[in-house]
Design a protein around this nucleic acid. Structure first.
Lengths: 146, 146
DNA sequence: TATTTTGTAACACTCATTGTTACAACGAGA
DNA sequence: TCTCGTTGTAACAATGAGTGTTACAAAATA
């Protein structure tokens, strides 16, 4: 089990948009070339980011743009936008036997604990901002030029 | 995407084993009845737990038993044993374009952050002990009897 | 030896992920 | 207005993981 690559692709996309916004038109074809996947994959992810208010896209003239400052976009926003995990991170077996004392109590005992684990992860995602990723990327690109 | 139900089933299994160890022979059929799945599912998970040194099983006479004190078994041990996540929680897109400045630097920028998120989750799993789950379950069963 | 149970192979079904082609809808410039 | 580049999206295919089932040999005990 792994969290869909939509998540890392989405971060890659936004990093590209921000890095190249003044040099190139950031179309789905341009972004697809950097990520190295089919442009339709990019467009689908852009649609999800758009619905979440994270990016804007333009028909006709083309291109994608950040819809708000990158220090207001966290990994959690992206993770939610691209729908990596519906609601529950842990898949609970569907029908524990309620005739068994353990079977009819297992949910009461586990649910809170599983949510605590999921929250630990999601809270970490909330700490991370897209602006930090872009800044680090620009630094690395800058070093390359030396 | 969700973490396999093998994880919650494994916890359910061990809770059952401990709760009923003096009353019943905890065979795969018995455990399957409580979890409400096919006995082969139970046996496969028991095999994984056995390889991790968490439970023991007996052929012929039958039954499964905890291989060590439950306060020495954490959720993390189980999560590793039943192989919910191979190594990386996040699926990174395979071949970012190294001709693109962002494509060739994205791994350097993201890898540490993704590991931090994964560690946040796994550290929480390490905090949780099977003994706590069993104790809570026994309390709830006790309340039912009143 | 007979019986019970485990261990495991061999399938099959479903579903999410990822990838592809195709094309209508749209916007801007000639 | 027409053309052209681009987005938005449907439709489909391939793959792989998760889950479930039947079947049966191997082992342990009475």
């Amino acid at each position: 089990m792994q969290i869909s690559s939509r998540f890392t692709i989405a971060i890659h996309i936004i990093t590209c948009i921000e890095t190249f916004k003044d040099e190139y038109k950031t179309t789905s074809d341009f972004l697809a070339a950097s990520v190295n996947v089919n442009p339709v994959i990019i467009r689908r992810i852009l649609q999800q980011l758009k619905k979440a208010g994270i990016v804007e896209t333009k028909r006709g003239s083309g291109g994608a743009y950040a819809a708000k400052p990158l220090d207001e976009i966290t990994f959690y926003d992206i993770y939610k936008a691209v729908d990596c995990v519906e609601n529950d991170l842990f898949h609970f077996h569907e029908n524990p036997n309620t005739n068994c004392p353990v079977g009819r109590n297992i949910h009461f005992v586990l649910d809170n604990r599983l949510h605590d684990v999921q929250n630990a992860m999601e809270n970490k995602l909330k700490e991370m901002k897209l602006s930090d990723v872009v800044n680090d990327t620009l630094k690395l690109i800058g070093k390359e030029a030396q």
